[in-house]
Design a protein around this nucleic acid. Structure first.
Lengths: 208, 208
DNA sequence: AGCTATTTTAAACACGTGTTTGAATCCGGG
DNA sequence: CCCGGATTCAAACACGTGTTTAAAATAGCT
């Protein structure tokens, strides 16, 4: 396995667990069993490494997600919000076959990216992968046309928050749930629980 | 104004903006115009300062919140979920008269506390202020008794995520909203938008 | 094999961090 | 007034950070 890959593999789990600022290059390189300088040699800087970690996942996810949402937009029948959000399920779970715990890791990274480092990652994602966002809002608009632009803006950000925040602490939550309710829970189970929640939230009656 | 207060005042806005790990004691003390060593003298350590910042808000918030939720539990009529979540409104907005931008700052701090520093703040809050959590779950249980313990666990955490995450990036979101929709938005407006969302989410049909 | 470009390595650099120290200063009560 | 505890202050400490350097090792090609 190449040094680059070893670094990316080690970095993504540490970043997901302890945040970008909370993870040092020395932790990453010793976990990856490579020299400290290798990060700057192969990636240039820590910031570029962060982008590379995210890109590896986004390049796997975004084509599948875009085409799933696209299919929804092209159908002649109006989709339900449940269908819109369910369109995320297959692409997200596919990350598990792309990498062990891929879904969970990616969602945790997404959560980190929103809060760490003053949202530079939000800028990175929206500028580098704009297609996902536009397709998504199109799909929601089609499912729930009564929602005006501003209401949709807020509800989609609430949804983003629900998903991202839940997933960024999903490991801890799953632990608690398994202890308290004595029941096997995995990331797919959490996602299936969250879909009705966000769908109902977006579909909430409009107050004006 | 006492040195202790000057430190707390400077620390809370920096913590809210850049996170706990992302804010250095030197930033805090120079903003507060006090000597660097004052933090360790008055609070002992940075960790204790974080706790002190949160406690100042929680001591203001928690009695009002508990009594509002308590009132809801004691009524003989079953409350709606909207009413349960609206119980948060007055206590939260009261923080604005306690301090400039108090509501926004506190919610941002809460968001930071969940993601920064591996959730030691979550431990701090749940152990130091358990009343809020138990009263809250009691109120929700009364409003929606069909929800079993496990489903409620997840939906309350989804709700927590929505609130906390939205608020931790509320400044950025409010900026975007004001530019894109040419409309004045404040933190109270965001809270009023989020209440129907989370109420609908918690009230979503149960899938078993 | 021999040469070149790529990669790895250990060491150092410059800086930022939280914390501690001990002297200087302030302030209230006898 | 003057003493003594509380507070402030500049300085230093010990350590961790991302990055850079230049030499050593490796790999690939003719």
């Amino acid at each position: 396995m190449s040094t680059k890959t070893k670094i990316l593999d080690a970095a993504e789990v540490l970043f997901a667990d302890k945040g970008f600022n909370g993870t040092s290059l020395r932790e990453i390189t010793s976990q990856a069993e490579v020299n400290l300088a290798a990060v700057n040699y192969h990636f240039g800087s820590k910031k570029e490494l962060i982008k590379a970690v995210m890109s590896r996942y986004m390049n796997e996810l975004s084509p599948r997600l875009e085409s799933a949402l696209n299919a929804l937009c092209l159908e002649e029948v109006k989709p339900t919000l449940i269908e819109v959000f369910s369109a995320f399920l297959e692409p997200l779970l596919h990350l598990n076959s792309f990498k062990d715990n891929g879904t969970s890791t990616f969602l945790q990274l997404l959560g980190r990216g929103y809060t760490d480092s003053q949202g530079f990652l939000r800028w990175f994602l929206t500028t580098q992968y704009p297609g996902v966002f536009t397709k998504f809002t199109q799909a929601v608009q089609k499912a729930y046309p009564e929602l005006n632009k501003e209401e949709m803006f807020w509800r989609l950000h609430f949804t983003m928050g629900t998903i991202v925040f839940t997933m960024s602490s999903s490991d801890a939550l799953i632990d608690i749930a398994q202890n308290d309710f004595d029941r096997q829970v995995d990331i797919a189970g959490v996602i299936k629980q969250v879909i009705p929640y966000v769908a109902a939230g977006v579909a909430a009656p409009i107050v004006r």
